[in-house]
Structure formats: C-alpha cells, structure tokens
C-alpha cells in the first residue's frame, strides 16, 4: 500500500468519524473524565486507608499524574469502536469488498484505525495540556517526543496483536471473549490498571520481555519522566520486534482463515 493511499483511507475514516458529532464530543469528554474520576477516588482512598506515603515508588500526586498520562495514552492505543471491526467484517461478509480491492486488507484496516484517532489525539493534547497547566506536573519536550514514538509503536503493536484474535472469526462465530481477554491481559500487564512497579519482582522481570508494557506503561512513564532514554530505547526496540513476530503470525492465521471463508451465502 502506498503512503498516499494510506493517508487517503485515514482521511476518509476521520471524516466518517466526525460525521457523528454527538459521539465525537461524548468520546472526547466523557471517555476520559469518567475514567479519571473513578481512579482518583479509588487511589485517594487507598493511600488514605493504608497510610502509606508511596506505593510502587509513586506518591499519591505522582500516581495521579501517571494515571492521567496512561489513560490518555490508552485511549489512543486501544481506540474506540474498532475492537471487533475485523471480526465483524468476517462474520457479516463485509470482507468481500476488501478482498476485491487491489490492496492489503491488514493495512487498509490499520489506516482506518489511524483515521479514527483524531478525537483521542485532541483529547490527549487538550486534557494533557490542561493538566500540566493546573498541576505541578512538568513535561519535557524530549519526553513528549519519546512518548509519541512509543505511542506509534504501541498503536501498531496493539492492532497487530488484535488482528489474529479477530481472525478466529473465520472458524468461530463469536470472538468477543478473546477480545475481552486481550483487553484484560494488556490492561493488567501493560500498566493500565496499575503501574507495573506494583508487581512482584519476578513478574516485572518476565514482563520486561513481553509486549504489553510498551503499549501503555512505556509511553506514560516516559511522558511523566519516570523513565528516560536509556530505558525507553530497548523498550521501543522490543515493541518493534514483537510487531514483526506477531505480524508473521498474522499472515499465517490470515491465510489459513481465508481457506475457511465463505463470504456469506451460497
């Protein structure tokens, strides 16, 4: 797929996304505010009840800063309304039209996913900016640049990981539970539910080689200054290695799945 076509598909998807105005604004405001409000009350209560000054190396304030960052990052990485698009295409036969196009289905769908980013990217800068203005948190330019690169890697990695699971729709009618399993695993081990420093040492050691931390934890930690270039570089390299490895798996599953495809109707 040419970069020009990729951008055109992303542009069309962005326009399509913005044609639903109510959804656009609800996603922009409610999506973030509701989640952060919940986490604010949970963590304030936990620090107050335990009496601890720090947890996993975080004070209450730095924990809240981390959550602002990780929530904003996760909104971009996971995206909204795209969790089962591929599975739905397979299940309902919408895949037919893409198979006739002289271009890659994987990259077509990924370009659409990129096109859907506009509201969440706006959210990232609006809420992130407001938070920096009205709190003691500081963001460095280098931290922001490293964060953006990590988000780009995490975004592609998440789609690459989700793709073969959704391809299970070639064999099974409903793959929703697999998507939930992916969400839970990535949220837990990726640092979205808790900072990974709260895990026991052995789990942190294992997790350092898995693809999850680079999804949410690394971009958030580098943004709030918890890790620097020395930790960021190997983490991003590991993320790219996982994209290649899982991408190869995608190809195998896609090819085998296509042999099963009936395209709905006889």
């Amino acid at each position: 797929m040419t970069p020009r076509l990729f951008l055109r598909i992303a542009g069309v998807e962005a326009r399509r996304r913005m044609s639903y105005r109510a959804d656009f604004w609800l996603n922009l405001v409610v999506g973030f505010a509701a989640k952060f409000g919940l986490l604010y009350f949970v963590w304030t209560a936990m620090f107050r009840e335990s009496g601890a000054a720090t947890m996993g190396g975080y004070t209450l304030d730095s924990m809240l800063v981390y959550y602002v960052a990780v929530l904003l990052v996760s909104q971009i990485i996971i995206g909204a309304g795209f969790e089962s698009e591929v599975a739905t295409d397979i299940y309902e036969g919408g895949l037919n039209r893409y198979l006739v196009f002289p271009t890659s289905y994987f990259w077509f769908k990924y370009a659409q996913r990129v096109g859907m980013l506009l509201p969440v990217v706006l959210q990232f800068f609006v809420f992130g900016g407001l938070f920096v203005l009205f709190s003691d948190a500081t963001i460095s330019l280098s931290g922001l640049v490293m964060c953006v690169v990590a988000i780009a890697v995490g975004h592609l990695l998440f789609f690459t990981m989700s793709f073969p699971l959704q391809n299970v729709a070639f064999w099974a009618d409903n793959v929703w539970s697999l998507q939930v399993a992916l969400r839970l695993t990535t949220s837990l081990l990726g640092g979205l539910m808790f900072p990974v420093t709260l895990f026991p040492d052995w789990l942190q050691a294992v997790n350092a080689w898995l693809p999850f931390h680079v999804l949410f934890g690394v971009p958030a930690e580098v943004l709030v200054g918890k890790i620097g270039f020395a930790e960021w570089l190997p983490a991003v390299a590991l993320g790219i290695a996982w994209i290649i490895a899982v991408g190869l798996l995608d190809r195998v599953v896609w090819r085998r799945g296509n042999l099963q495809y009936s395209g709905i109707g006889i």
Binding site: V100, Y261, S262, G263, G265
Partner: peptide, 11 residues
C-alpha cells in the same frame, strides 16, 4: 459461490 470463487473471494 461460483461468482465469489471467480472474483477471488473464496477458495
């Protein structure tokens, strides 16, 4: 089914 095979949609 025949049309889908000839259009390359199914094997």
């Amino acid at each position: 089914t025949l049309v889908k095979m000839l259009a390359g949609i199914i094997f």
